[in-house]
Simulated scan of single mutants.
Amino acid sequence: MSRVLVTGAASGLGEALAAAFEARGDEVLRTDVSYEGGVETGASAPSSTHGTFRLDITSDDDWAAALAHVEATWGGLDVLVNNAGVAGGGRLDVATMDEWQWITEINLFGAVRGTRTFVPMLKRQRSGRIVNTASLAGLVHPAGMASYNASKAAVVALTETTGHELAAYGVTAHVVCPSYFRTNLTSSMRGADTELAGVVSHLVESSPISAADIAAAVLEGLDRGDELIVPDQPARDAHGLKQSDRATYDLVMRAQAAKLEGAPRG
Rank of each mutant, 00 (worst) to 15 (best):
Y180C: 07
T96A: 01
S147D: 13
A66Q: 11
L166W: 10
P264L: 01
H202V: 09
T183D: 08
L166A: 06
S187I: 02
A19R: 15
G138R: 00
N107Q: 03
L5V: 15
E165A: 09
I229F: 07
T41A: 11
A68P: 05
A65S: 14
L241P: 03
A72C: 06
S47T: 12
T115E: 04
A16M: 02
I57G: 01
N149T: 06
L55V: 04
R124H: 06
V176S: 04
D250F: 12
G75H: 08
R224P: 07
M145L: 15
S127Q: 10
L228V: 09
L158W: 09
T31K: 12
V112G: 06
A157F: 02
S34I: 14
A192V: 05
V94W: 04
N132F: 01
A173S: 12
G114V: 07
I57T: 05
A146H: 09
G89M: 05
T115F: 04
A173D: 06
D26M: 05
D250I: 14
V4E: 13
A157I: 02
A153T: 10
S201P: 00
S147W: 05
A167R: 11
E99Y: 03
R124Q: 08
A10S: 15
G110S: 07
S147T: 15
G42P: 13
A212E: 14
F109Q: 04
A18R: 13
G144C: 00
S210Y: 03
G128Y: 01
Y180Q: 12
Q233G: 02
G221V: 07
R129I: 10
H202G: 04
A111W: 02
R126L: 01
I57M: 02
H239Y: 14
L166N: 10
G85C: 02
A84V: 12
Q256N: 15
A72M: 06
A143K: 00
Y180N: 11
D78A: 08
A9Q: 09
D250L: 15
E22L: 03
L260Y: 07
M145A: 10
M189K: 00
R190T: 04
G37Y: 05
G8H: 10
E227I: 06
P178M: 01
R116W: 08
V70C: 15
Q243F: 04
V6P: 09
G262A: 14
V6C: 09
T172P: 06
L222G: 08
A192D: 12
P178L: 01
F118E: 08
G42N: 10
P231L: 06
A146I: 12
M121Y: 01
R246M: 14
E160P: 05
A143I: 00
G25P: 10
G25I: 10
G144K: 00
H141T: 15
A20W: 06
L203I: 01
L203D: 04
G51H: 10
G88S: 07
H202K: 13
A238I: 09
C177K: 01
A64R: 12
T52I: 03
Q256D: 15
G221M: 09
A257N: 13
V199K: 04
Y169E: 14
A217S: 13
A20K: 12
N107G: 03
N82V: 11
E71F: 10
R126D: 01
T104S: 05
V39K: 11
R113S: 04
A257K: 14
